[in-house]
Amino acid sequence: MKAYNITHLRELEAEAIYVIREVASQFENPAILFSGGKDSITVAHLARKAFFPAKVPFPLVHIDTGHNFAETISFRDEYIRELGAELIVGSVQESIDEGKVVEEKGYNASRNALQTVTLLDTIEANKFDACLGGARRDEEKARAKERFFSHRDEFGQWDPKNQRPELWNLFNGKKHFGENFRVFPISNWTEMDVWQYILLENIQLPSLYFAHEREIFIRDNVIMASNPLVPQRDTEVSVKKTIRFRTIGDMTCTGAVESSASTLEEIIEEVAASRQTERGTRSDDKRSEAAMEDRKKQGYF
């Protein structure tokens, strides 16, 4: 007798596609939050599969801090052109210029936290009722309790103690006027699943993920790319190293790892042998034990 089994990656893919199609059916004006990182690229790829041969019926939204790596932006523009989708950019610089947020000062200044305001403004201005994101529950402990369909009140806030129960694959997207949802189709994927899927599906990624030579310096045991946005102390001397990034965020807070992994296969081997989580290189999570939980409540990604 034949066994009707599918592999774990195909099961995760089927679940994610189901969730994305539910979003298209249950909401009037959804969007995909697209950072140019591997997780949101995976979500965009899954959306493409979900509606084929029709086009992805959502615009892609990029919250641009103005502190992105140049590689991320050029990848984003090329990707959107090829997908034939609409790109909507929310600019943190504009939020600063309009006086809605105040730039942090000092050596560890980052626009990471400021993004939340720009994100919520962009959602409101475009009247998005659901935003698809690439967050995963394995990333961080506050995310382990996140739902697939995450309800946000009219202030865009997340209330972790009052979440709707989520049963089977029955997703309740009902909401009052002004409220919206964040939806996370790859909630159940791990970093390894994402990499294996990218290899399986031959998904294109920004060059930052692959080993390359770059000027770097060390701060608090984190390898940072030397760049004009981050003032270096006298003791923080730039050197040339072969590195790659495990996550892609702002130049001000994204750490790199020393690596010679230049192909997807090599990256998977490296991830399998790695003894640090990918967010271990993110200085934004190290600010306090509940840093992510606090940011999420306010409406962060």
């Binding site: 529950r137 394995d138 382990a144 309790k145 972790p160 103690k161 909630s187 159940n188 791990t190 390894m192």
Partner: peptide, 8 residues
């Protein structure tokens, strides 16, 4: 609340 964990 229900928390989800992953291992392989």
């Amino acid at each position: 609340d229900v928390a989800y964990r992953y291992f392989a």
